[in-house]
């Protein structure tokens, strides 16, 4: 359906903006390494099913792309972040990883290693942007491309919400776990979305309150 395709496309766009920004500027300025490490963890733990289940060629290619691009991003960020003297990327990610793992243990589709990892990845994804937003807030201002990247990334899960509503009516299917974490993820972005609309769409400077 249209919402899901649009969501996946905005996810792809966010990754291309990110990689392109790093490569063009040859700098990791304003980009959180920790957020990108969390996304790599999210993709690897969610897509372990690549090894034992097959949905479609689209699904497989996208999963391989997300895993490989997230690892590539980390390598590039590591390479360029050495030169930055004041690198405000100091969010304690253990405060995100540990609760996500506990929530994965509590809410899952079966007490199996693969199901716990899948649930963990959903919870972790919902809060993975926090180091990046934290960094943006600390630095006070940001490059336009960085904000476009964060916007496209947030838009992806936001578009999954109408996708789930559509699927509920069209196919009679829904998943409480995916929807709950998807809504949390969108809420985490809500302040950013509002500021993005106010400042970027109306073409003024950017800062988070």
């Amino acid at each position: 359906n249209i919402f899901r395709i649009a969501g996946d496309l905005s996810h792809l766009v966010s990754i291309f903006i990110l990689i392109n920004t790093i490569n063009v500027k040859k700098s990791a300025q304003g980009i959180s390494l920790k957020t990108n490490i969390l996304y790599a963890v999210v993709f690897v733990t969610r897509y372990v099913d690549l090894l034992y289940s097959y949905t479609s060629l689209y699904n497989t290619l996208m999963k391989i792309f997300f895993i490989s691009s997230s690892i590539y991003t980390i390598v590039m960020l590591k390479k360029y972040s050495k030169n930055i003297q004041q690198y405000n990327d100091d969010f304690k990610i253990e405060y995100l990883i540990a609760p996500s793992f506990v929530l994965g243990l509590i809410f899952n589709h079966g007490f199996k290693f693969s199901e716990i990892l899948w649930s963990f990845s959903l919870w972790l994804e919902s809060v993975s942007i926090l180091p990046q937003l934290f960094m943006l807030q600390k630095s006070g201002e940001s490059q336009l491309l960085t904000t476009h990247y964060i916007f496209a990334l947030g838009l992806y899960r936001a578009l999954y919400i109408p996708n789930w509503i559509y699927r509920y009516f069209a196919e009679g299917r829904f998943d409480k776990l995916a929807i709950t974490t998807g809504i949390i993820q969108t809420l985490v972005y809500s302040d950013f979305f509002y500021v993005y609309y106010q400042k970027v769409i109306k073409n003024i400077g950017f800062s988070l309150p």
Binding site: R4, D8, H11, D49, S53, T55, S56, N59, M62, K63, F66, H109, W118, Y160, N163, R167, E171, R173, F174, D175, L177, A178
Partner: peptide, 10 residues
């Protein structure tokens, strides 16, 4: 099933 429906997503 519901599970396979959601896991076809990314």
């Amino acid at each position: 099933s519901i599970l396979s429906a959601i896991k076809d997503e990314l």
